[in-house]
Design a protein around this nucleic acid. Sequence first.
DNA 1: AATGAGCTGGACTATTGAGTCCATTTTTCG
DNA 2: CGAAAAATGGACTCAATAGTCCAGCTCATT
Lengths: 203, 203
Amino acid sequence: MPRIVGQIDQAKSQAILDAAAEVLGTGGLSAPMDEIARRAGVSKQTIYNHYGSKAELIRAIVDRRVEEIAAPLLAPGAQDHPQEALAGFGRVMLELVLRPLGRSMLKMTVQAADDMPDLARAFYEAGPRTSRRRLADFLRQETLAGRLAVDDPDQAADFFAGMVIGVRQIAGLLGVEQAAEPEVIERVAQEAARRFMRAYGID
Amino acid sequence: MPRIVGQIDQAKSQAILDAAAEVLGTGGLSAPMDEIARRAGVSKQTIYNHYGSKAELIRAIVDRRVEEIAAPLLAPGAQDHPQEALAGFGRVMLELVLRPLGRSMLKMTVQAADDMPDLARAFYEAGPRTSRRRLADFLRQETLAGRLAVDDPDQAADFFAGMVIGVRQIAGLLGVEQAAEPEVIERVAQEAARRFMRAYGID
DNA sequence: AATGAGCTGGACTATTGAGTCCATTTTTCG
DNA sequence: CGAAAAATGGACTCAATAGTCCAGCTCATT
């Protein structure tokens, strides 16, 4: 989202955004603008031409990702058995949390939270809040259909999301390395869905 | 843990540590040393006499708390019914996460993670890791006693901790305000324990 | 070819904050 | 009491970094 709309090179805007996400995500928000410029293969002035300040650059990074975050969280297609749908939810959430992109985005937002509370809130709404809401809607619907017996869908959604994400999110923030292999993701999502069914099944 | 051991005033050491925890916890790690000095009612030079640098001061804050964190996570006394013990675990974990002290400690550690990975790791071990381990031990033991049917205690412990903590930890880091009333804590802990029993009960 | 918008690179300013210095005062303790 | 240790406070140095400036360069369009 360049500030000046003339012959500005859109490809450069992207390159800057990518480089900034990379640099700020790994090195922290205090990483210098010069390094971003170097990484993007662009002069510092150009960054300031495209985005007006470091804060706006950070905002642009998060804004771009925020749109992508909510996308995969669409309610999964109604399956025969809700357990499959739950596992699908779990898989998507775990991937969001474990992938480097989701990680660095969260780290950035947490670091920025003190100075840019609105940004932190927007991220919270788009990520954690939206995922819980969609999940709660699904649980409500399945309960109405008689396939689950969930009395408090919001709480249950929080429980399930917590089971799946577990300690992984905070470990990522603390830089404690963790496996993100697809098999692990699949296993955790499946098992969480299975246990959730026992906890909230109709039997 | 003053660096120079002469006639140094221990009370001042504490005052500095308290002020630093307060200032750095609320304002972020970039809060200036001058403000800490002001808040502690002490000259800046005195801080440097007691702790050699800002990094060491941060370390001292975290080290002090790390010892306190693990303390309440002692295995609860064996109850008649494991559900009560689980609820107790949940209550303690939630309190750690929701109290301002635990919050600011986590925030500080996350912010410092880039520059002081060893500190982040120590915090991770003392907090999240220890709590899961103790919980897993408890589950193992209850399974041996025939009161639970947990096949993978580590995973189950992670599930339970995740249910209880849920979205609250990340919300705290993002500065999205949340209730920490005792009734809420109690209700969540009880319900999580109840659902966990259904998911992992012997029946 | 000429134009002009955007880009480069590197020097420059201004600010902020860690850590030091030091002359003076206060506290501790033999 | 008197000396040594510690604390004060305020000025100081030094490094890092956001953001600006500018002279010369690139390149698409006409």
